[in-house]
């Protein structure tokens, strides 16, 4: 599996097939038992946490359930500012300005600064998660089912937000999802995972036509269709 700079790679597969584990491997948050991980031409397989740290800011993760990834004692300002605090001190005012800037980039206003994560709605929490990830100025953003907990209206706006950010900040995405319906409009390429293995990688908009593996077809056919007559699986 390979992600080229500036592209969006989708990673799909059923629940529990190892998508999240794979992303943690990529980011060096979990040790690999086999295989190699390279980033920007550097083999980072098995790097220690200390060695990894300078690289961390270049690849960030947007979590499936953001609220669990926020320290419950932290205000939104501190949460978003954490990557900034890790490297060097900023003055209080600079720090606040930077945080507001990152928040406005994800369409949140400064009102949330002094709130606590549990006081925000699910969509807002997810946006804060994205803002925190962006505050590290990453090149690669791994989105782990970033809107699986939201309704379809929000999904659409979030999707547009992610696409806009990609253009604005020249990001590379690894987009993990179990929802194949997003793939054609979002991903340049998509890798299909099953039981901890990547089965195949195809062009995102050609997923229906080009897939070779029967599992991919099965997955694609499981996407609910708007018109019941178009359903590919009969119940």
């Amino acid at each position: 599996m390979q992600i080229k700079q500036g592209m969006t790679l989708g990673l799909v597969g059923e629940s529990g097939c190892g998508k999240t584990t794979l992303s943690k491997l990529l980011l060096g948050l979990e040790p690999a038992t086999s295989g190699r991980v390279t980033f920007d031409g550097i083999d980072i397989t098995g790097w220690s946490a200390g060695r990894m740290r300078p690289l961390r800011s270049r690849m960030q993760l947007v979590f499936q359930n953001s609220v669990a990834t926020f320290d419950p004692l932290f205000t939104i300002e501190r949460i978003v500012a954490e990557p900034l605090d890790n490297n060097g001190r900023l003055s209080v005012r600079e720090r606040r300005r930077a945080v507001i800037e990152w928040l406005s980039l994800v369409d949140l206003d400064g009102q949330v600064l002094n709130r606590y994560p549990h006081e925000l709605s699910g969509g807002q929490q997810q946006r804060v998660g994205i803002a925190r990830a962006l505050a590290s100025r990453p090149e690669l953003l791994v989105c782990d089912e970033p809107f699986s907990s939201q309704d379809f209206m929000h999904r659409k706006t979030m999707l547009q937000l992610l696409l806009r950010l990609k253009r604005q900040l020249n990001l590379t995405y690894l987009f993990i999802t179990h929802d194949l319906s997003l793939v054609p409009e979002l991903c340049d390429e998509v890798s299909v995972m099953h039981r901890g293995k990547v089965l195949e990688t195809v062009k995102g908009d050609r997923i229906a036509a080009d897939c070779n593996h029967p599992y991919t077809r099965e997955l694609w056919n499981a996407v609910p269709a708007l018109n019941p007559r178009d359903r590919k699986i009969r119940f």
């Binding site: 948050l29 740290r53 300078p54 669990a68 990834t69 419950p72 954490e82 890790n86």
Partner: peptide, 15 residues
Amino acid sequence: DFIMAARSSGGSPTQ
């Protein structure tokens, strides 16, 4: 999870 998030944002163990 928020400890993992802190690690991935580049925090040192002391931090």
